[in-house]
């Protein structure tokens, strides 16, 4: 599983960036970038997101 961001829902507040224990998420202006190699699928970003823009999805190979 890997964290995914739905940019339609995202309010680009950066809460997910601050909660990510492995610094896998970066907010650049109005876009969220997720380093899938770093992501440990902990789901913290899903839980903190105020707008439900984060989810854990099956990693595509």
């Amino acid at each position: 599983m890997v964290a995914k961001n739905n940019s339609n829902k995202c309010a680009y507040c950066g809460a997910c960036v601050g909660i990510c224990p492995v610094a896998a998420i970066v907010l650049k202006d109005t876009r969220i970038f997720i380093d899938e190699k770093k992501c440990i699928s902990c789901g913290s970003c899903v839980k903190i997101c105020p707008v439900g823009a984060m989810s854990l999805e099956i990693k595509k190979k």
């Binding site: 960036v17 601050g18 909660i19 990510c20 610094a23 907010l27 839980k47 903190i48 997101c49 105020p50």
Partner: peptide
């Protein structure tokens, strides 16, 4: 809250769920 600069320089500023409000 999305601070990464300190983390890049070796100081962990990350939050945990228990202590963070949404």
């Amino acid at each position: 809250i999305d601070s990464l600069v300190a983390r890049m320089l070796g100081l962990n500023t990350a939050n945990n769920l228990k202590d963070t409000d949404s």
